[in-house]
Structures are given as structure tokens and as C-alpha cells.
Amino acid sequence: MIKIENVHKSYGTGDSRNEVLKGVSLTVKDGDFVVILGASGSGKSTLLNVISGLEPADEGTICYDDRKVSSMNDTELTKFRKEYIGYIFQQYFLLPNLDVDKNVKMGADLAGNKEYRKTIKAVGLEEKRMKYPHELSGGEQQRVSVARALAKKPKVLYLDEPTGALDEQTGRQVLDYICTLKRELGFTMVMVTHNQNIAQMADTVIRMNSGRIVETYHNTKQKTAYEIAW
């Protein structure tokens, strides 16, 4: 369980100080699928970075089970991310000089996962295993990044606009791969998006507006990536 209480975060100082998170509290149950909605600039990415231990919060507490992330130093945070967290970003951020196999291995080695090729197969990239990122389409690159994050066997997967750079068809396909793997592996998932429709796939939906959570609700029935409108 992830417990976030009264998290504040601002950038800059003095007159240019910009409070991006203005007291966010939220609880995420194990195995939950949370979607965070909100307009551009409302602080979604910042929230994701702060609760996943990439950036320190100014104030407030963040706890994963009995581990208090908000009071860890940089080395402890790195170790924590290694054990707990997987990331998928809008811009993929694959390692350009290494092929698909090695990119996925990057995640797998952190968890001592020797069977990472199964994950490559699971995202349908078995044939492109020896290709380099620049030789792949956007959708394929994002699937590599999905395999990389999941080969790491994370307890929590954070996704920041994973379909933001993809067209409808590849977007649906990537989401479908992610959800299939979630059912199989049972990790917790927190996804940021500004596509309202994707919210219908989630268990819990959170809406943000200028640094605050303004709405939280639970879906009784979840749609699949091919059932939602785009």
C-alpha cells in the first residue's frame, strides 16, 4: 500500500516561486490501477516523480508499506527504486546504443531476472530482438520500454502519458499489452494521462487541477483498451 499525505512541492524561489503541488493526499492499494487525469501543467508529472522517489518533496510523507520514502537520501532512494519501481515515459528514453535485447536486460538484471526474453515475447517483439531503437517505430519503442520496465518485476509501475506520442491504433495496442501483463503479474499501476477515455480502464480515477486533487472515484466495471473510445 502506498500512503501519500499532504505532499507539497514548489520550484524556484522568491518571486518566481511556483507551488506545483499544494497538499496532495492519496492512498493506493496493492494491485490497484490508478489513472491521474488533469490539464497540462496541473502537476501530474511532478506528482508522479515525487511519489516514485525521483524528486524530493518539500513537505509531507510518502510511505510504501512500512518504508518511508520521504525521508530517504539519494542512495537509499536509488536502492528503493531498484526494488520497487518501474517507469514508462512518453518519450520512451531507450538506450540508443544498445539493441532491444540489451535494453530489456537493463531492467531484468536489476531483479536478477534470467527469463526476460519471455517479456520481450509477451510484447510481441521477439523478431526485433536484435534491432536498435532508431530502427523501430514509436509503438515498437514504447513496447520495448514496457518490456524493460516489467522485466524488472516492479511492485509499482508508473506511467507518464505512455500513449502521448502514439496514434490511436498503436496506443490501444500498447495499453492492451500493459493490461494483459498486469493481470498476469499483479503489480500496482499509476498512470498519468490527459486522455479522459483511458480513465474507463482504471479501478480508481483521480482528477487534478492546479496542484490539488479535485475528484476521486472508482469504476465498478473496467473496459479494455479496445472497448474505450479514443
Binding site: P96, M106, M130, Y132
Partner: peptide
């Protein structure tokens, strides 16, 4: 264009070793 020097043959070493070689 991205300039990448590819590996000549497939290897199966730990990731950090692969990174070092690359």
C-alpha cells in the same frame, strides 16, 4: 540520423558489461 555502432555478434553478458563494451 542516429549514429550507432552495432555489436558484431550476439553476446550474453551482464548488462553493465554490455554497456561497457558498447
Amino acid at each position: 540520423a542516429v549514429k550507432v555502432v552495432k555489436a558484431k555478434k550476439e553476446t550474453n553478458m551482464p548488462f553493465l558489461t554490455e554497456l561497457r563494451k558498447s
